[in-house]
Design a protein around this nucleic acid. Sequence first.
DNA 1: GGAATAGTTCGATGATCATCGAACTTAGAT
DNA 2: ATCTAAGTTCGATGATCATCGAACTATTCC
Lengths: 107, 107
Amino acid sequence: MSVGSQETYELPAVLPVGSVQDVLAALADPVRLEMVRRMSADGGPVACVRLYDGIGKSTASHHFKVLREAGITERVVIDGQVHQQLRADELEEALPGVVSAVVAATG
Amino acid sequence: MSVGSQETYELPAVLPVGSVQDVLAALADPVRLEMVRRMSADGGPVACVRLYDGIGKSTASHHFKVLREAGITERVVIDGQVHQQLRADELEEALPGVVSAVVAATG
DNA sequence: GGAATAGTTCGATGATCATCGAACTTAGAT
DNA sequence: ATCTAAGTTCGATGATCATCGAACTATTCC
């Protein structure tokens, strides 16, 4: 096992939460907003494949990257499987209420 | 005076506040976010020309339209001059906390 | 009425971006 | 070692969208 015997670990390069502008731009896409909703509902790391429907893997991977670069999510590896996790605490600290209000919105 | 002798009135077709998705898409553009920030800071109707810098009138008018169609703003005519006003109350009711958190964000 | 100012609409242009498929990588299973 | 499954990266394509200038509308001022 090339990463040692840990079963769960973050991948490096967790980026700082971006500007409101960056975060809004990331959430403006319906596919990404749905991903964030699912991560928020789960609360913990979610396997990639459970975060989208109806698009290809490469497209999904692109959206993960956008979310990560905005500092909204991070990658966590669990038993060799990549998961995505919402950085809820960091987001609340950097942009209080923004993501939580968006996720809570019904309309 | 073709509209009668009122000095202040809303233009017709005030649209309902759109979905979170619509609102996020509208706020994702830096020019529009700045417009919303200025309207929020003012609190009341703001003359069009005070809401932007560095872009042409036609571009600004396009952005006003996008904001209006998302239900974020409405047009108010004061003494024959068009103003834009943030629909803060309606936004809070439809999407509690979303716009206020975005505007309050410093980063 | 005519001139000037303020906003909107329209068409065209250029840039940005979501999407796909294919190739590559990594990890686990046989 | 081979096979398979999961993610990522890359290039290309198509659509969406911000921007501009010009033409049009409406309103105020002279």
